[in-house]
Design a protein around this nucleic acid. Structure first.
Length: 313
DNA sequence: CAGTACGCCTGGTAGC
DNA sequence: TGCTACCAGGCGTACT
């Protein structure tokens, strides 16, 4: 399921292909996924790509943006003459695009080249096996009025962690504004007073943006904290450890190109590799990487939850 | 208000 | 083998 690292991987992958291109047509095969009037964006040029939590925003040179949520199985894949030979993951629904899962198809023109050096048409495919995702045409001044974006909590984005000593690049800044960065103090405030179990708390997008089931499970293992404990029972030291663990797992996933346990593929239709390096997620019955006792799976807040009962207290 | 249950959706798989 | 039942889960909605 695309979480912060997966959406960020797609954003970075897409921006070098999409920026400067003009949308010349949109084919809508599944109507419920595309919300709004396609006429509002046809003819517009793509000027920037941003990410807010698990949401992706394609900014246009008119009054509109395209807001995209991939939910469980959504994919955004770019193709042009040069990328035609890149092998697609079977998770895209076939060996060529459009596939049976390609529900929205954007036709793009490269406006940067003159006629003599025209790179020709290009396509952006929105694929979605389970059809949970959406693409919305939104006026620029109304984007942050949408509850999904307006209520998004601060984000644990590695590129912006102040204590890392790294100066965030402008590219990193553009994808997650500094004012919306999850600082240790903000994290403490969120966790300290909460009567909710820590794992569903980490996944609540209104409190913290971008963490889903995979990274909530792995971060809690890394910090040696039982996922069932309520936020208010965590000590200062445990909160510190968990804060660091969240950044560590997200950073690791970005390095592996995201997790393709479900249907995630990057902007070119290729799989990530974090699913082969999870600490506990998807590893029921396997030996714990630290103590060798079997990983258990329980249900918490209606979601599959993996943990090591002897390491996580 | 905070917490919880359910619907959306399809492919994979366990069980008969 | 072929059928049914159930599971995966992000998020909006409805409910307690």
């Amino acid at each position: 399921m695309p979480e912060l690292p997966e959406v960020e991987t797609i954003r970075v992958g897409l921006q070098k292909y999409l920026i400067g291109r003009k949308i010349i047509d949109i084919k809508i095969r599944v109507a419920k996924i595309f919300v709004g009037k396609k006429e509002d964006v046809i003819g517009a040029k793509i000027v920037n790509l941003r990410r807010i939590g698990k949401g992706l925003i394609i900014e246009l040179d008119n009054n509109f943006v395209l807001a995209v949520h991939l939910k469980m199985t959504g994919q955004l894949i770019y193709r042009d003459a040069k990328s035609e030979n890149i092998k697609l993951s079977p998770k895209t629904g076939g060996t060529t695009l459009p596939s049976k899962y390609s529900h929205i198809i954007f036709k793009l023109k490269n406006q940067k080249s003159n006629l003599k050096n025209d790179e020709g048409d290009a396509y952006l495919y929105y694929n979605d096996l389970r059809r949970f995702g959406w693409i919305r045409v939104v006026r620029k001044d109304e984007l942050m009025k949408m509850p999904f974006f307006k209520e998004m909590g601060p984000e644990p984005f590695v590129g912006l962690k102040p204590s890392s000593g790294l100066k965030p690049s402008s590219g990193l800044r553009s994808s997650a504004s500094a004012s919306n960065f999850l600082t240790l103090n903000l994290f403490k405030n969120i966790v300290e007073g909460s009567n909710v179990s820590i794992k569903p708390l980490l996944m609540d997008q209104k409190r913290i943006g971008g963490i889903g089931n995979i990274y909530a499970n792995d971060a809690l293992f890394e910090a040696k904290i039982d996922p069932r404990r309520k936020g208010k029972t965590l000590s200062d030291e445990e909160i510190n450890n968990l804060y660091d663990a969240i950044f560590a797992v997200i950073k690791k996933s970005l390095e592996y190109g995201g997790s393709s346990d479900e249907n995630f593929v990057n902007a070119l239709g290729q799989e990530g590799n974090y699913q082969n390096h999870t600490l506990v997620y998807g590893r029921e019955g396997e030996p714990c990487k630290v103590c060798r006792n079997p990983i258990e799976k329980i249900k918490l807040g209606g979601r599959g939850t993996y943990f090591c009962p002897s390491c996580q207290r």
